[in-house]
């Protein structure tokens, strides 16, 4: 009836990239495309609040052929488009996979929203949540489903730490604590070794997914509430810990 290939060999790894406005989601995607385009067949779906700005950015950056970058307009509801009502994105991903078959990875960039916006497991197989040091060193401690439950947390623009009085190591430690040991990557496009770490994570995720060893996990809906900041540790309720994959860490919400 619909094109729902159920086997991983005919379907790309669908990798979501979420995070607040301005943290560098587009540049994370640009970096992945630049580094991995010769290794993997890639496609990108952007979600925008206004028109197709992010798609234009990626096209003008020349990281992929323009036809492999497509925009979904979200009616100023970026959160809805990746969570409550994923139909538009799902169709965009399925079209992309069909038009450029076989694709290895389709990256879905969410429209910049807030800390509570995470992808539905109906849309993506794995997701990266992007924070940046300029947003403040305490953001990682504040937690939220994206920070605590995404498959990878990226703390971006670490080269700016000293300019915005953020102790990057402390921020990474806070984030690791909020994620109960889940992977955290300190990233700067000016530090090639960090970009290579990002790519290594993507490679590993693709390998796990292609082997059927990765089961999409839901970072969780909007957290019911957060505890105060006094103990330096924040968590959201409603999580039950399930299986593990290659990173030794995941949540399951069934």
């Amino acid at each position: 009836m619909h094109d729902h290939p159920s086997h991983n060999e005919t379907r790309a790894l669908r990798l979501g990239v979420a995070g607040p406005v301005g943290t560098g989601k587009s540049s994370v995607i640009a970096a992945i495309c630049r580094q991995l385009r010769d290794e993997f067949a890639l496609g990108v779906i952007t979600n925008d609040i206004y028109t197709d700005e992010d798609a234009r950015f990626l096209k003008s950056a020349g990281v992929l052929p323009a036809e492999r970058i497509r925009a979904v307009e979200t009616g100023s509801c970026p959160h809805t488009a990746i969570r409550d009502d994923v139909t538009m994105n799902l169709i965009a991903v399925e079209d992309m996979e069909r038009d450029f078959a076989p694709l290895d990875i389709v990256l879905v960039e969410s429209g910049g929203d807030n800390l509570t916006a995470t992808f539905s497991p109906a849309l993506v197989d794995a997701q990266i949540f992007v924070l940046d040091v300029a947003g403040g060193g305490d953001v990682a401690r504040k937690g939220g489903p994206g920070i605590s439950g995404a498959d990878l947390l990226v703390i971006n623009k670490i080269d700016l730490g000293e300019h915005v009085d953020v102790d990057v190591d402390r921020m990474v430690a806070d984030a690791t604590s909020a994620r109960k040991g889940g992977p955290v990557l300190a990233l700067s496009r000016k530090r090639p070794e960090t970009v290579e770490q990002l790519c290594a994570w993507v490679r590993e995720m693709h390998k796990t997914y292609a082997a059927g060893g990765h089961i999409p996990v839901d970072p969780g809906p909007m957290a019911p509430h957060h505890h105060g900041e006094g103990d330096g540790h924040t968590h959201s309720h409603g999580h039950s810990h399930g299986h593990s994959h290659s990173h030794g860490y995941t949540h399951s919400h069934d």
Binding site: A81, D84, D85
Partner: peptide, 11 residues
Amino acid sequence: GRLPAGGYAHS
């Protein structure tokens, strides 16, 4: 209006 069929993106 909450039927997940993408109507929210249109005015």
